[in-house]
Simulated assay, not measured.
Amino acid sequence: MQELLQNFGISEQLFTYVIMPLLIFVARVGDVSINTLRIMFMMNGKKTIVPILGFLESMIWLLAIGQIFQNINNPMSYIAYAAGFGTGTYVGMYFEEKLALGRVLVRVITPKPLTELLEYMKERDFRFTNVGAEGRYGKVQLTFTVMKRDALPDFIAKLKSVDEKAFYTIESVKRVSEDDLNVMDDKPRFNLSFLSRARN
């Protein structure tokens, strides 16, 4: 190994304290990001791609942890491993947000009917139910709707513009009964070729 490093002009110290920790960091970012995506696809019922991501995640993790054991006396390896985990979590969340797969259930509770919001949902063909209910301080209006996740930011912005103090909750939905609302038909907002093939 030392002769190979010398052929590339890399000293053993540079490899041990810089290159190897960097490789561990990159590997950890990769496996944690894949783990986040795997959980997201699993929650959305993507049975084809989940095992593939699980295989890649475990393989990368084994490679990273193997290098940790080989460099057990190198503190930079531990720092790179931990830093890779934190960075990988952020990267995974970023991709999860960009993919915006699945649907969400939104509940909106207001003291009075929000006619403008209901018209907004009708214009965009949202399925919703609006009912009267009893709250702590009297009568309220309760609105249920299911929408694609990528439509959520615009919906919340509209809700805030109509009633800034409106109370709402959001929950993930794995599957809905109507065929045209099946989450299996959802597509990400940007294309990743290997993910597109896995969904088919």
Rank of each mutant, 00 (worst) to 15 (best):
E3S: 09
Q6N: 11
Q13M: 04
Y17H: 15
V18K: 05
V18F: 15
M20A: 15
L22I: 11
L23W: 08
V26N: 02
R28E: 07
V29G: 05
G30K: 03
D31W: 13
R38K: 11
I39V: 11
M43L: 06
K46C: 09
K46D: 11
I49E: 01
I52A: 11
I52R: 08
L53N: 02
L53F: 12
F55M: 14
F55R: 05
L56A: 13
S58N: 15
S58V: 15
A64L: 13
A64N: 12
G66Q: 07
G66D: 12
N73C: 00
N74I: 04
A82E: 07
G84D: 08
G86L: 10
T87R: 00
T87A: 12
V91I: 13
M93T: 11
M93F: 10
Y94V: 14
F95D: 02
E97V: 01
L99E: 00
A100S: 15
G102P: 04
V106M: 05
R107H: 07
V108I: 11
T110A: 12
P111R: 06
K112I: 03
E116G: 02
E116S: 12
E119A: 14
E119H: 13
M121Q: 09
E123R: 12
R124T: 10
R124Y: 07
F126A: 01
F126P: 01
R127V: 04
R127W: 06
F128T: 02
T129V: 03
V131W: 05
G132K: 08
A133S: 10
E134Y: 03
Q141N: 08
L142P: 00
V146R: 00
M147T: 13
K148N: 14
P153I: 10
A157Y: 06
D163I: 01
D163S: 13
E164A: 10
E164V: 06
K165M: 03
K165C: 00
A166C: 05
F167W: 08
T169I: 11
I170C: 00
I170T: 07
R175V: 15
V176P: 02
S177A: 14
E178W: 02
E178F: 08
D180P: 00
L181K: 13
D185A: 02
N191T: 15
S193Q: 04
S196N: 10
R197N: 10
R197L: 11
